[in-house]
C-alpha cells in the first residue's frame, strides 16, 4: 500500500501505524449530560463499511503526523489524505 502524504508525497505503508476509524477524533464532551453513553459509543462502536472509510494513520517512521486517510475498503483506493491536526481544528477542536 502507498499513502500519498500531504506534505511528503507517496510513502510506503510500512512507515505508518494504523489506528482505525477516524471517529476517534471526535472525543465527546466529558461535561455532557449523557457523557458516559457518548464515551461508550466513542470507545466501542465502529462501523465496518464496505466502501469509503475514513481512518487514522500515524506516520511513525516519517514526520510523525497523524493523518486522516479516506480509503475504499473494497478497492483500497485512497481518495484523500489530510493532516489530522488540521481536520481536528476545522472540526472545532482546540485545547
Amino acid at each position: 500500500m502507498i499513502i500519498n502524504h500531504p506534505l511528503l508525497g507517496p510513502r510506503d505503508s510500512s512507515e505508518f501505524y494504523h489506528m482505525g476509524d477516524a471517529v476517534l477524533m471526535d472525543r465527546p464532551d466529558p461535561e455532557a449530560e449523557n457523557a458516559a453513553e457518548q464515551f461508550h459509543d466513542y470507545a466501542y462502536l465502529r462501523d465496518n463499511p464496505a466502501g469509503e472509510y475514513r481512518e487514522l494513520w500515524y506516520h511513525e517512521q516519517g514526520d510523525r503526523s497523524w493523518l486522516v486517510v479516506t480509503r475504499d475498503t473494497l478497492t483500497h483506493e485512497i481518495s484523500s489524505v489530510e493532516l489530522a491536526r488540521e481536520v481536528a481544528r476545522a472540526q472545532g477542536r482546540s485545547k
Partner: peptide
Amino acid sequence: AERTVMEHMG
C-alpha cells in the same frame, strides 16, 4: 532529508 524505516529501524 527524509525520515523513514530500514530493517525495522527508524
